[in-house]
Structure formats: C-alpha cells, structure tokens
Amino acid sequence: MTMIDIDTLDGAAGFDAYLAQPGEVPRAAVIVIQEIFGVNEGIRRKCDALARAGYLALAPDLFWRIEPAVQLDPDIEPDLQRAFGLMNRFDQDRGVADIEATIRAARARVDGGKVGVVGYCLGGRLAYMTAARTDVDATVGYYGVGLDGLLDEKHAIANPFLLHMAGEDHLVAKDAQAAIHAGLDDHPRVTIHDYPGEDHGFAAEMGKRRSETAARLADQRTIDFFARHLG
C-alpha cells in the first residue's frame, strides 16, 4: 500500500493520502473522497479501479485532524457508531481545503494536467462543495447528504458535475431529493442520474450495502464521464 504526504494549503502541516498509479503515463488524476469510514479498503479499491482505467488516483485522509489513519467497516455496528461520531466532529470547510491541497498535489504529479474528484456519502457532499469552491476539472458525487442545503452555491459550479442519487436513500428524504432536482436540473454543468429502489451506499465496493447492478451502472457512468471531461 502506497501512502504519500500532502502539504496543507498553508504549508503548516501535512496529511497522508493513498496513491494508486496506472502502469502507463496517467491520462489525468482523480481524487477519491472518503465516506465517514476513512480511507478503508473500499475506498482504496475505488482508487485501484481508477488506476486500472489509466488515472493517477489519490484518496486523502480527511479525518487526520481528529484521528489519523482511521479505517472502519460499515457492517460492524460499533464501527458505524464511531464513524458517525467522527463525522460530527469533522470540519467540512477544512476538509474542502485539504481536498484543494490534494488537487494541487495531484495536478503537479500529472504535469499540470486535468484533475477530477469523486466522492461517496460524506464524500459526495464534499464533492459538491469542491465543485463549487475549487478549480477541479470534473466532479462526481455518489449519494451526497444534505445537498439541498447547499443549493445557494450552485452558481459557482463552473465545470461538469455528475450526481448519482439513490431513490430510496434513508439519509436523503424524498423532499430533499425533489429539492435537489428542482435546484439543479436546469444547471448547464450538472447531470443527475437517479437509481430507483436503491439505498444509500449502493455503490460500495464490498459489504451489505452494495447493489451489484446499480453499482456497476453508476461506476461505468463515472468512468465514461471522466473519459469525456478529463481524457
């Protein structure tokens, strides 16, 4: 497992990121934003899959200020409760700043080339915030939580953004899903794919949450999206 150090934007500290590299010169770079379970095996597998598709992939440890190197299993109840506790202590604005620092580091590793972001759960929310607040070239969010409360930032999304939304997401109510559609359907840079009958976490790499058919469809759409917008 390859871990590298990323400097914070102010250069005052550093944090780890998992690195997966393709066997050839990278097409571009993609930042993989963790769920509330840390940079666990599932997130590392997402990076590895992107590397097989030709991208340099980096997954920053966004909980490093609270508890570095945490890896939790959502199918284990104590781990799940611990993950919610970490999320409640997590500063999302500082998290986006750390993602921006990772984007800069990734861009340097691909000689100034394009950088995309993909995030899951909490990472899906942070992906939206990243799309609105940074110069990332293309962004994908899976079942982001609370996006209906961030619609006032939609005007700042300048580059392509793809959202995968679970129709039966127990963490995103139907009225919230409707508000997201109402707020973003006419946005020229945003595409939303709905997955009827699917619950939060359906594209997890492993475990009880994974829904195989929907996961494969969403992941193929993500790869196709990055191929169009990153190369």
Rank of each mutant, 00 (worst) to 15 (best):
P22C: 14
R94W: 05
I33C: 06
D185F: 12
L62I: 14
G119T: 02
A218P: 01
D7E: 15
D93G: 05
R82S: 12
C47Y: 05
R65A: 10
R221T: 06
D199E: 09
G54M: 09
P22K: 10
G113A: 10
V32G: 02
H164K: 04
A13K: 14
H155E: 15
F226K: 02
N159H: 13
A158S: 14
T213Y: 00
H200T: 05
L171A: 13
I99D: 03
V110Y: 05
M1G: 12
A158C: 07
A203N: 04
Q81R: 14
I103R: 04
L230C: 04
L230A: 09
I180T: 08
Y128D: 11
H155C: 04
A127H: 03
D152P: 03
I99C: 07
D175F: 07
D148W: 09
L86Q: 03
Q220I: 02
H187G: 11
L126K: 07
M87R: 14
L9W: 07
V118Y: 00
M87Q: 13
M165E: 14
E205A: 13
L126D: 02
G11Q: 08
G38H: 06
P160Y: 13
L80H: 04
P68F: 10
I103N: 06
G149C: 09
G54H: 06
E198H: 06
Y55E: 09
L9P: 05
P26D: 08
A182W: 00
R125S: 11
R210E: 06
R189M: 14
L62C: 11
R107W: 00
F84R: 15
E41Y: 07
A13D: 15
F15P: 02
A83F: 06
R209W: 01
R94A: 15
A53S: 14
L9A: 14
V70T: 14
S211P: 00
H155T: 13
E212A: 15
G116L: 09
G231S: 08
R65N: 10
D79I: 05
E35C: 03
A101S: 11
L162G: 05
D61I: 03
Q81F: 09
A158P: 07
D175T: 11
A12Q: 15
R45G: 13
P196Q: 04
D79E: 04
H200W: 02
V136E: 01
G183R: 08
F37R: 02
G141F: 07
I43V: 13
Y18A: 10
D199H: 11
E168R: 10
A105D: 12
D91G: 02
G207T: 06
G201Q: 01
I192N: 03
A83G: 13
T139K: 03
D61E: 07
V115D: 02
E35D: 07
M206N: 08
K208Q: 14
F90L: 12
G141M: 10
E212I: 11
A97D: 14
L86G: 06
L62K: 03
E212W: 01
